[in-house]
Write a protein that binds this DNA or RNA. Sequence first.
DNA 1: TGTACATCAGTGAACGCGCGTTCACTGATGTAC
DNA 2: TGTACATCAGTGAACGCGCGTTCACTGATGTAC
Lengths: 195, 195
Amino acid sequence: MVRYGRERKQVTRRRIIEAAGRRFKADGIDGSGIAALMADAGLTNGAFYAHFDSKDDLVAAVVADQLREQREGLSAAALGRAGAEQMLRQYLSIGHRDDPARGCPSAALLDEIARTADPTRRAYTEGVLAVIDDVAARVAPNDPRSARARTLSIYALMVGTLQLSRALADRQLADALLEQGIQSALTLLDAAERT
Amino acid sequence: MVRYGRERKQVTRRRIIEAAGRRFKADGIDGSGIAALMADAGLTNGAFYAHFDSKDDLVAAVVADQLREQREGLSAAALGRAGAEQMLRQYLSIGHRDDPARGCPSAALLDEIARTADPTRRAYTEGVLAVIDDVAARVAPNDPRSARARTLSIYALMVGTLQLSRALADRQLADALLEQGIQSALTLLDAAERT
DNA sequence: TGTACATCAGTGAACGCGCGTTCACTGATGTAC
DNA sequence: TGTACATCAGTGAACGCGCGTTCACTGATGTAC
């Protein structure tokens, strides 16, 4: 009954999700039309509904996928404080700030995600907790439960800093903020260790 | 030559800007239509272009106005560390999180502002620096220049924390993050003082 | 003081356009015999 | 091995709708005489 290879449609679905991720992060969710992101995926608009029920359905899938990707990217980081600092410096780099389309979904879309309906916000919550618990386990493996809240708080600092650096029209100030963000995050990390 | 009272049109313009501020923060900039926000202001869509050149023009005006309002609100805060803590607790409160329309424009719109054209980003930069320099002067009046970068960094933490708390579908976790955000901000404040 | 007039903030219908979504169709694929 | 057929991912035109913007008009206002 399966006419084409079983995975073939899944591969296309994945291509749409990845193209949408890039589009959404570059132009916003509201700012990205179905036709444009299907063209990015090398398809026409009509094919969209063979893969998703609606744009909202896609948004939830994209949010989940983006956070899974972020989690995988962060898993490559080294352990301990040195690893944490390296990760911070990469996240709060000029390169990351100037390339939202390939960067952190939270930095690009967090306030838009906050306005979405429950399914998307649940996908976001689940995804971000997976990221945070993963990072917390690597950076502070000894700390038990409170690591989640503290790591989440540092994540909030990172996200807010990148967003603010992107919004500032003064490049020098925007760059200085990134560096200050790294220092602030390290301060929080060390304060947590000391407790 | 002035037919109506000189201020009359300015009063209407202000009403539009304030209505737009609420709408934008509730539904996003892309998510808010001219007709809807003019209706909020008690007018019809056509009158819009007697006050603004374009939607972009309005957005820049709203961003400037919102930050001026935030600056005025923060000027009421008490001085010193106690004042800072009180301000933090108000910003990172459940009430503020659950009422974006009347809250901080950065928390509601920062990633959308980051995607806007230069005039709006310049208005944002100017406005946020006025807020930050004002707060820095009140909270750490002795500290000279580096206060700006540090205060900006704490602002980024506050904004990121509120956004993240709004996006999380788990209410208990969202509440805990606000409290952790207050602790993190105080840690950064104290670390700055110590230097 | 009363009337004709000029002003202009605001009205509301209309514009072209792109949105999310639907649908009749195509054509490459693998199956059945 | 070859041919007729069923499947279904993808096409592309069309749908109603709301968007930002334009414009001919209205009617309340204050001015001129």
